[in-house]
Computed example of a mutant assay.
Amino acid sequence: MTGAEGAAHFGTRLAAAMQAHGPVCVGIDPHPGLLGQWGLADDVDGLRRFALGALDALGGRVAAVKPQSAFFERHGARGVAVLEEVLASARDASTLSVLDVKRGDIGSTMAGYADAYLRDGAPLAADAVTLSPYLGFESLRPALDLARRTGRGVFVLALTSNPEGAGVQHARTGAGSVAGQMVDGAAAENASVLAEGAGAGLGPVGLVVGATTGTAVRALGLDLAAVRGPLLAPGVGAQGAGAAELAEVFGDARAQVLASTSRGVLRAGPDPQALRDALAAAVDAARAALTS
């Protein structure tokens, strides 16, 4: 379901998918431990059987899938070829793909990354990608602009739950906290996109905000609702974030949250029905946590 020139932008398509299938994104993370749990070897054949098996079971039933590029890249060129298959299969299943690459660079190099993941017809084109803005939010401009032209989206790292992230993201400058600058940048991009259309709904520029970041959002004075874009939230469910934690982190922005889960669903495999049951349970839990 990648976009094309003039297509409905990613935020509109994601909102529709969340309404239809629930606010859950399933990460396709074929790390060695999960391959072993599925009885598969840690090689390209095991990678392919795992990734396509998960997509066959869940495609058309989930708001989005999120392949983690690193677990494909570690197998070299043949692993990247499997990633191409996964993205093509997601399109065939009319399932949105968020490619988790966390790329970030400057100038022509950033333009190259944008071309790889956000250009119509690119072998690795996805509906959205994750981006790292820590060379400055404006360093992402090539990706922001190409995503806007092709109806795709981006998720910008803003407030992650790893302990090391706080030293950078919580730091304050004359313009406020580093995380706050990412929030403001995303909000400005979405305001511009939405001003061209109906002026309502989700914009195509999302943020990655860990569901287990606790009081950091309030302590840093971040207005996540003002972003008017999707909030990709790792940490819901298996990693401990329930209704209380989501209310603390996201507050009035909970309707924008796309809860990300991987092992919580994938460890139920390889049986397709078991995967679907695990997805249904994750969706029920996310809906309850985000509306309570």
Score class of each variant (00 low, 15 high):
M1A: 13
M1Y: 08
G3Y: 10
G3N: 08
E5H: 15
A8V: 14
Q19L: 14
P23K: 04
C25S: 06
C25G: 01
H31W: 01
P32W: 02
G33K: 04
L34V: 01
G36D: 09
W38N: 00
G39M: 05
D43P: 11
G46C: 02
G46T: 04
A51W: 03
A57D: 06
L58T: 06
G60W: 09
V62S: 03
A63L: 01
F71N: 03
F72G: 04
E73L: 05
V80L: 14
E85V: 05
E85T: 03
V86L: 09
L96N: 05
V98M: 13
L99K: 06
L99F: 12
G104I: 02
D105H: 07
I106P: 04
S108A: 15
Y117G: 13
L118R: 08
D120P: 14
G121A: 11
G121H: 10
A125I: 06
A126T: 08
A128W: 12
S132N: 13
L135H: 06
L135I: 07
P142M: 08
A143K: 05
R149F: 14
G151R: 09
G151M: 11
R152S: 12
V156F: 06
L157S: 09
L157F: 06
L157V: 12
A158Q: 12
L159G: 02
T160W: 07
P163N: 11
G167L: 15
A171W: 07
T173D: 04
A175V: 13
G180D: 09
A186R: 11
N190S: 10
L194M: 15
G206P: 10
L207F: 12
L207S: 13
V208N: 10
A211G: 01
T212R: 00
T213M: 03
A216Y: 04
V217A: 03
A219E: 14
G229M: 05
G235N: 00
A244T: 10
E245T: 01
E248C: 00
A253S: 10
A259Y: 01
S262G: 03
S262D: 02
S262Y: 01
L275E: 02
D277W: 06
A278G: 03
A282H: 00
V283Q: 04
V283D: 02
A285G: 01
A286L: 06
A286D: 00
T291C: 02
S292P: 13
